Computed example of a mutant assay.
Amino acid sequence: MSVADQPLAACAGLWRPSDEWGDCYTMVMVDATEELFHIHDRMPVILHAADHDRWLRAGAEEAMKLVAKYPADRLAVERTDIPWFSRKAPPAEAPGLFP
């Protein structure tokens, strides 16, 4: 998947230093748009080009206004026959939550 209307896309993310792991990073996710739900149920928050600096400098309340689905008609999806993951069924003898 790529952003059709931007030469380079930026996703909203968070980071923090950690004594145990060093710098820790995560991308902010939202529910996928209906058009992309068959690919995955979530998608990263893709920032509009005009909002890149705003995300980096905004306080929490202002940043939350940028947490939204990117319009599906502005995304390009290149399909392949190769799955990017495979789901494994749990073993039949997998322990349950309750004895």
Rank of each mutant, 00 (worst) to 15 (best):
R42Y: 03
E34Y: 01
L56E: 05
M29A: 12
F85Q: 11
L8M: 10
I82M: 06
C11M: 12
G96I: 04
L97Q: 11
Q6G: 07
F85L: 12
V45C: 04
R87G: 15
A9M: 07
E62A: 13
R54P: 00
A12H: 00
A76M: 09
E93A: 06
W55T: 01
W84T: 09
F37N: 13
R54D: 01
E61L: 08
V67K: 09
V3D: 02
L8I: 08
D51I: 04
M64W: 04
D51Y: 05
G22I: 04
H40G: 14
P7I: 03
G13K: 07
A12V: 01
P17V: 00
R79K: 10
R87D: 11
G13E: 10
D81P: 02
V30Q: 03
R42W: 01
A12Y: 01
A58T: 03
V30M: 09
A50C: 10
D73W: 00
A72G: 05
W84N: 13
P95Y: 03
R42E: 13
P99A: 08
R57F: 04
R16Q: 14
A68M: 07
E78M: 08
P71R: 03
W15D: 15
V45D: 02
H40L: 10
M27W: 02
E20G: 11
D31H: 04
V28I: 14
K69P: 15
A94L: 09
E20N: 10
A89V: 10
W84D: 13
A92I: 05
G59C: 10
R79P: 06
A50S: 14
R42F: 02
A68E: 11
A89P: 15
D23I: 11
P17W: 03
F37Y: 07
S2T: 07
R16N: 13
L66C: 13
V45Y: 02
I82A: 09
M27S: 15
P99L: 06
S2A: 06
D73H: 14
H40S: 13
R54C: 06
V67S: 14
A32T: 01
F37S: 09
W55R: 09
W15I: 12
R42Q: 11
E93R: 02
T26Q: 09
M29W: 01
E61Y: 01
G96N: 09
G13I: 05
L47M: 07
T26K: 05
P71T: 00
V3N: 02
L56M: 10
V3W: 01
R57E: 15
G13P: 15
E34Q: 08
A63I: 01
R74C: 07
